[in-house]
Every structure is written in C-alpha cells, then in structure tokens.
C-alpha cells in the first residue's frame, strides 16, 4: 500500500510501439503493466509525466497522445540529453518508468465558443497535439481553428501524416514554416511568429495556445498582442529543470511559480513580468 501512495515511485509501462518521427525524435506508445490487466491512463491535454529509464535517470515529458484514447499512453521524445538518448535505444517490449500525470492543462474547455490559434515550434507540437485532438473531436464547439507550426528544417517536421490530414480538413487552417530549407522545399521559409500575420484573428473571441522555445513564444506573444489579443487569452507552456514533478525538489521555480504544479501551462498574463527577467 505504501508503495502506491509514494509519489516518487515510478510505475512500469511497456513500450508497445516506437515511431521514429525525425532523426532525433521518436514516439512511444506505452501500456501500463499491471497484474490485473490494462487500465487507462487519464490525463488532461498539456500535462506531463516523469519518465524513468532504468539506471539512467528521469525527465519530464509532455503527453502527446489523445486524451480520448487513454488505453495507450503516448509520449513524443527528442533525444537531446543522457536520459533521452538512452530512451532512444529502447525498443518495443522494453519497460519505462512513469510517474504522473502532473501539471496544468491547455484551456480547451475555456476555449469553447471561441476561435483557437495554436502555435507550435519544433518539439512544441507534441504537448499541443492532445489539445488539437480534443478540439477536433468537439469541432462544432469552436469557431475558426488555426494551427501555425514552425520547424527547423523540412526533415524536422513532426507528425507529418497528421499535419497533412489536418491541412486537408475544411474546418481547420494549417500553416507550416521552416527556418532553413534547401531549394527543393516548396513550403514556407521563415519563422513561425511571422505566420501570425497570415491568419484572421478576432482578438476578442480567440484563445491562443503557444508552445516552443522561449524565444519563439516571446515573439509569438508579441505578434498576437499586436493583433489585439490580451495576455490572459494567450497560453504558453514553460519548461524548467525538474527532479520530482510534484513541487518538492525546488528546481522548476520560476519566480513564485512552480512550473511542475502551477504550470507548465500558464496564461501569459500570469508570468508576463517574469518573462522579461533574464536568468530567472
């Protein structure tokens, strides 16, 4: 019993499927290893788990799957550090430790009745994908839905198949850009904040959800604000060092906020003054 109430103990999850998204990014579909069968993993769009690889370490990773399909826990991971590089070596059938879900969620309910502008940069599309799934499943509850996505190069574009599907829908506008490309690329070249001027925004009836590197989010917020959006209608997802995910280890502090339990998703108005302070 004690083992189940200890929030620092990872639960074993089996890797059911590995998808190689790009050269350094991959997606795991996980199922919970329980003696009494497979139970679902409920979470809210935007939440994260602490993922543990045996003997290597534990890191926070956002959930990238569909909240309406809790049978499989889905994480999209970019190999950038020692733990994620160890994860990249894992195969179907291997086990991963999971603690969570933790943190705040994208305002998908709050956005009902409004237009939605989703802006993702790089791996930032992964934490937003659950929100996109949710919104598309209840498409009639929203006005215009726009996805602006920026990647480093055409080869770094995540979830390409789904992006094509979404772009093919009549009820969703999808614009994609890359920072760098060879001459063979037929799409946009330029930074993702520059896409904001290409879409129609009704500032009084729009919720924006933004996830990517801090610099990218900074310029997106400026772009949205220039289009008349207030800071409390723009939501961003923040990232900091985390060792526990539950507000005990002190690492993810951001001014008064703990990114792990007060975030990672914040209305920009809540962190606006912190955002401009260097080395916070």
């Amino acid at each position: 019993m004690a083992a189940q109430t200890d929030p620092m103990l990872p639960r074993p999850f089996r890797i059911e499927k590995v998808t190689h998204e790009t050269a350094d990014t991959f997606t795991f579909e996980l199922s919970q290893q329980q003696t009494n069968g497979n139970s679902g993993f409920d979470f809210a769009c935007g939440q994260f788990n602490m993922l543990y690889t045996f003997g290597t370490g534990e890191i926070p990773v956002s959930i990238s799957g569909d909240p309406a399909r809790p049978q499989r826990l889905v994480h999209t991971i970019r190999a950038v550090g020692s733990v994620t590089r160890a994860m990249k070596k894992l195969k179907k059938g291997d086990t991963l430790g999971v603690r969570g879900p933790f943190g705040s969620a994208w305002p998908v309910q709050q956005a009902e009745g409004n237009d939605v502008v989703i802006i993702a940069g790089g791996i930032g599309l992964a934490p937003l994908r659950p929100a996109i799934y949710s919104i598309l499943q209840n498409r009639e509850k929203y006005g215009n839905v726009v996805l602006l996505y920026g990647a480093r190069t055409p080869q770094d574009i995540l979830f390409e198949k789904e992006l094509r599907e979404w772009r093919g829908r009549f009820d969703m506008q999808v614009l994609i850009t890359v920072d760098h490309a060879l001459g063979t690329w037929k799409g946009n070249i330029g930074v993702v904040p520059d896409l904001i001027k290409r879409v129609k925004i009704d500032p009084d009836n729009t919720i924006a959800m933004v996830c990517g590197p801090e610099i990218m989010m900074r310029f997106c917020v400026i772009g949205l604000h220039n289009r008349g959006m207030e800071h409390d209608t723009i939501f961003v997802s923040m990232e900091r060092n985390m060792k526990c995910g539950i507000g005990l280890c002190g690492h993810c502090q951001y001014g008064p906020e703990f990114i792990c339990k007060d975030g990672p998703v914040f209305p920009f108005s809540k962190i606006r003054t912190l955002f401009d302070i260097y080395e916070l």
């Binding site: 790089g122 480093r152 920072d179 904040p193």
Partner: peptide, 9 residues
C-alpha cells in the same frame, strides 16, 4: 531568430 537556430540542440 533563424540565426539563433531556436529548435537546434
């Protein structure tokens, strides 16, 4: 911003 290579490692 492109020079920063925001999404690079």
């Amino acid at each position: 911003m492109q020079l920063l290579d925001m999404y690079g490692t």
